[in-house]
């Protein structure tokens, strides 16, 4: 902690850190959407947003203002308290998971000793908000989407957890800061066989857990219009979108931290945070690349992929990692 903060009360430091982080996420997410739109446009031989500001750089700001000005339409038949609370309940876990991520050595809101477990536990709470939105809207498309979401999240939470546990075993700690520090010599993605397989499984289950194409059956524009958020408009819609993108960005940071060595990179130490950001954006672009490259697959295919392939594979990989860790004498 820098010396300037030393004589401040602890709660004030925590409040300031959270304030900076929350605003950073909101702004970061806005520009991540621009990055995705530009990237997707290039993949489809388009230019993407270009009109607002130089190279469309002000597009996210314009979008945010537009969303704030929009009328807030509440369906008459909606379950009002549930409908109104859903975006907030959805957003909170998506924001909370950033709390444990150390953006540079010692630079995070809370480097808990159960860091990764906190991330996994809180991000699994997202489904409650999602389901409240699906149910509260009292719309059959929204409800169908929420049901599909439950199916998918039950199926992909476990492979996601197992894949994330591989670096935990290699580092011998649940604390995200220590997992990052353990990769100072060798990034876990470079760990023979285990690292690459773990990373592939992690990316696969991230894409599925974030409900992005080819696993976006709960959004499925052609059949469910927009899924669980079909009845939302204005700022409530914006909150859901913010939560969804924040979750993707947080998962990208987690992927960069678990497999790509977090802040380690050439150059002076203060460049660490920048390296981390670049790596996280690379993971995000990888996820986006998958999204814009494949077509949506069917529900049964999604479930079969999880239970018949991904689940046993990640479980075997986890066992294998445990054996290797004990064999090489890294077990503590």
């Amino acid at each position: 902690m820098p010396a300037a903060f030393a004589d401040m009360p602890a709660w004030l430091v925590a409040a300031i850190a959270s304030f900076i982080l929350l605003n950073g996420i909101a702004l970061g997410v806005a520009y991540v959407t621009l990055l995705e739109r530009k990237f997707a446009a290039r993949m489809q031989s388009r230019i993407g947003p270009y009109r607002v500001g130089p190279h469309g750089l002000l597009q996210p700001i314009a979008d945010a203002i537009k969303l704030m000005m929009k009328e807030d339409v509440v369906p008459t038949a909606a379950d009002k308290p549930v409908y109104n609370l859903a975006p907030i309940v959805f957003l909170i876990p998506c924001m909370l998971i950033f709390a444990t991520i150390p953006f540079a050595p010692g630079l995070g809101v809370a480097d808990l000793n159960i860091g990764i477990l906190f991330f996994l536990a809180v991000s699994s709470m997202e489904i409650v908000g999602l389901f409240m939105a699906g149910w509260g809207s009292n719309n059959k498309y929204a409800l169908l989407s929420a049901m599909r979401a439950v199916n998918q999240i039950i199926s992909y939470d476990l492979p996601f957890v197992f894949a994330s546990l591989v670096p935990v075993l290699l580092a011998g700690s649940l604390r995200l800061g220590e997992i990052a520090a353990a990769q100072a010599g060798l990034w876990f993605i470079a760990y023979p066989v285990i690292g690459q397989l773990g990373f592939i499984f992690f990316i696969l289950s991230t894409v599925a857990a974030e409900n992005r194409a080819p696993f976006d059956i709960l959004e499925a524009e052609s059949e469910l219009v927009a899924g669980f958020r079909v009845e939302y408009s204005g700022m409530k819609f914006a909150l859901i979108q913010l939560g969804e993108y924040a979750h993707v960005v947080a998962s990208s940071f987690l992927g960069a931290l678990l497999f790509l060595g977090a802040w380690s990179g050439p150059g002076p130490e203060w460049l660490g945070a920048i390296w981390f950001l670049i790596k996280a954006m690379l993971v995000f672009l990888l996820v986006t690349w998958v999204r814009w490259s494949f077509v949506r697959i069917r529900v049964d295919q999604i479930l079969a992929l999880s239970w018949k392939a991904l689940m046993p594979a990640t479980l075997v990989l986890l066992l294998l990692t445990a054996v290797v860790v004990v064999w090489t004498g890294n077990g503590r």
Binding site: S124, A146, V150, D157
Partner: peptide
Amino acid sequence: EFLAAVQLLLYAGGIITIVVFAIVV
């Protein structure tokens, strides 16, 4: 903290999901 995280992961995340699923179905 460990128990708190497990509580969230298994009960608030998992069990609730399954209960909700059962209701809707």
